[in-house]
Nucleic acid binder design. Structure first.
Length: 658
RNA sequence: GGGCUCAUAGUUCAGUUUGGAUAGAAUGGCUGCCUGCGGAGCAGCUGGUCGAGGGUUCAAAUCCCUCUGGGCCCA
């Protein structure tokens, strides 16, 4: 029982309006009013009916309150007690409700008894595939990549906790231009294929080479031919170049994954591009596209001898060039169809790495003739959530979400059109765009990324030009800053403890800062701003939590048992917290429905702010009345229980002390 | 030239999907509050013609149109 059940109760009452007062049936809302003076909940039903019937909203509101709601509440109160205490028609036309907190607060008891916040069965076991990260394995992850990861991983967590079966995918483009670039550098320009500087991670080292080789291309244009040769070798496979490339890719990938794991992201499957190419999925896809008449062969004009697709609102797009090679857009189609599980699965899944949470990361490998789809090295694989899907290759996938930055929105829409025409089932395939992360002029100067155009306020990152700020660098800076602060506050804490806590603060701060913003808005990353750990940050949440935990610790001798009289919590701020806590299911539902994890971050901040008001203005441990003390302790406890759940969803680390 | 997207307080942003009551935070500036449950906090003041103009509506930051200015994609 939560706030949503109260809303349902109001809905039941209001629905009587249509039958008893002869109004047309409409969709209305029951929400929280903008100001607390207006009560706990409000509805817009009178406005909407006014529009239909040309009566005044105030008249309808009064009518509904007097004829429908008040008699019912009074009736219920005669026999039992209603969770609704009062309904009022505001002259403007709003109908406002007041909750009976004596009843409502009892809902908290369940939260406390369970010791964890409720498992919401929104997904009902539906299977969802989320692809995120998908960074070219030739450079370190920068802050823009981390935005992608944090959005994807938080969504994963949201789906996971609401009874969805989730597969997290990471697409590894091991046969594209970017990887080929560094292979050219190793094979033809004499760069060492390992980092000489021990402090330089291999992905960072490759990032430097990637930028250098791109400078070399400018003066040595013949190198482009060598790159094309490399790409061809990788696509063909089973040769020295492809073997060498995989060795490099694997090493870079493992370093990149260390950064992902550092911020507590996890994956289920690595989808390797060269294997998708070799799997023959493209040929099948090509046939299907021809068969369903989705693509057309052009016999004259500028696209002569090409296979093209005509999007609804755009010029036709080449999918297969006149030389028979597939374009970038075309290459993505077989992968999309694999995600939807349209074809028989051509892969088996082999162990790639063990992850921080004890789960196994698998990678695709092509099935050899006659072998069946299976997981290799099963004994190594613990906690595997994928087994079921892998031995049932045609299992239905209900939803596929790809997290991708908005520069690719155009291509995505073309792909989406193609997929919609290919797949007639009701599966959902969607792209989730987010705006890029750019660097502030100030930060570019500080990091010493070279002289930039002074007129530009923001500078876009570019791996090719060597202009980026790595995720690890930011985390390290955050950790240093936090460690310093902790030290100044705790003279007795050991270096080891300080470092442990500082790392957790750093991870949480970065995740929160990336997730709380709207996906549609570009982030101008500024290092100095990022290092500020006051105000609307994860630390504020962690700090509030630590305060609550301290209270509970000091009251440990008092076990919260038996019937606690939560009705004693009658201060305004106490009621507000109860309502805020019991709203959590509405928030999670909305976050999932709109694929907006930021809603959760905003909620957490709101709740923490309320707790801090409570903390400053209401005594808990000093209270003489034992019943009141227990009631308040219960409130504090339910706050901590809910917050642990929210922390888990947001990937914020739980710290009892900081 | 075509398309997508953003514009709200000095600054960074919520609120726009689904129109509703006095447009909210944070930060900055100014001012209070620690022998009390952790001051990385709390309270107060300051600060906004919601980019501009028009339209729809009883009601527009929110919906529609035009324009301006940033960012991106394509040509």
């Amino acid at each position: 029982m939560t706030l949503s059940s109260v809303i349902k109760e109001i809905n039941n009452l209001l629905d009587l309006t249509f039958s008893e007062l002869q109004y047309p049936k409409i969709e209305y809302e029951v929400t929280e009013p903008p100001l607390k003076e207006f009560g706990d909940l409000t509805t817009n039903i009178a406005f909407l009916l006014a529009k239909k019937t040309k009566k005044k909203p105030s008249f309808i509101a009064r009518e509904i309150v007097e004829k429908i709601i008040v008699p019912r509440i009074e009736f219920i109160n005669k026999n039992d007690v209603s969770v609704l205490q009062l309904a009022e028609a505001h002259p403007a036309g709003h109908i406002n409700f007041k909750i009976n907190y004596h009843i409502f607060s009892k809902f908290l008891v369940k939260l406390i008894e369970r010791e964890e916040f409720g498992f919401l069965n929104i997904g009902k076991g539906k299977t969802i595939r989320i692809e995120h990260t998908s960074v070219n394995p030739n450079k370190p992850l920068h802050i823009g990549h981390l935005r992608n990861i944090v959005i994807g991983d938080t969504l994963y967590r949201l789906f996971k906790c609401t009874n969805h079966n989730v597969h997290v995918l990471n697409y590894i483009d091991d046969s594209g231009v970017q990887v080929a670039d560094i292979i050219v550098a190793f094979l033809f320009k004499g760069f060492e294929s390992k980092s000489i500087n021990k402090n330089l991670k291999f992905d960072e080292y490759c990032g430097e080479i990637y930028s250098k080789i791109n400078d070399i291309y400018q003066v040595e244009t013949s190198l482009i031919n060598k790159r094309n040769f490399i790409i061809k070798q990788i696509e063909e496979g089973n040769n020295k170049v492809s073997e060498f490339t995989w060795k490099i890719v694997k090493e870079v990938l493992l370093e990149q994954l260390k950064t992902c794991w550092r911020i507590k992201a996890r994956y289920d499957i690595l989808n390797i591009e060269s294997q998708i190419i070799a799997s023959g999925l493209w040929d099948k896809t090509f046939e299907l596209l021809k068969q369903k008449d989705i693509i057309k062969y052009v016999t004259d004009g500028k696209n002569k001898n090409c296979w093209v697709f005509k999007p609804e609102r755009e010029e036709e797009k080449v999918l297969v060039r006149s030389d028979g090679t597939a374009t970038y857009v075309a290459k993505d189609i077989p992968y999309a169809l694999w995600k939807l599980s349209i074809f028989n699965d051509p892969f088996r899944y082999v162990f790639f790495a063990e992850q921080w949470d004890g789960t196994t990361l698998l990678k695709t490998e092509i099935l050899k003739n006659g072998s069946i789809n299976q997981i290799e090295n099963k004994d190594k694989i613990e906690n595997n959530t994928l087994e079921e899907i892998l031995i049932q290759p045609k299992k239905k996938i209900d939803k596929v979400i790809t997290i991708i930055d908005s520069r690719q929105a155009r291509l995505q829409n073309i792909l989406l059109e193609i997929i919609k025409r290919l797949d007639s089932t009701k599966q959902e395939y969607c792209y989730l765009n987010y705006e890029t992360v750019a660097l502030s002029q100030q930060t570019v100067k500080e990091i010493g990324l070279g002289l930039q155009n002074e007129n530009k306020r923001v500078i876009h990152m570019s791996g090719r030009k060597g202009i980026y700020i790595s995720g690890d660098y930011i985390l390290d800076q955050l950790r240093k800053k936090s460690a310093k602060e902790i030290k100044s506050r705790n003279s007795t804490m050991t270096e080891k403890d300080i470092d442990f806590i500082a790392e957790k603060i750093a991870i949480s701060a970065l995740r929160y800062s990336l997730i709380k913003r709207d996906r549609d808005k570009m982030i101008t990353f500024d290092m100095q701003e990022e290092l500020k750990l006051d105000g609307d940050t994860s630390l504020y949440l962690q700090y509030s939590y630590a305060r609550a935990i301290r209270i509970l610790e000091k009251a440990e001798h008092l076990t919260i048992q038996k019937p606690v009289n939560l009705g004693l919590l009658n201060k305004d701020i106490e009621k507000e917290i109860i309502k805020e806590i019991l709203k959590y299911d509405i928030i999670i539902e909305k976050a999932i429905e709109t694929l907006s994890p930021k809603i959760l971050a905003r909620y957490a901040n709101e709740l923490a702010a309320k707790f801090n008001v409570f903390y400053e203005s209401v005594q808990v441990l000093q209270v003489e009345n034992i019943d009141l003390k227990l009631a308040r302790l219960s409130l504090v406890k339910s706050f901590t229980i809910l917050f642990r759940g929210i922390f888990l969803l947001l990937g914020i680390e739980v710290l009892n002390k900081l």
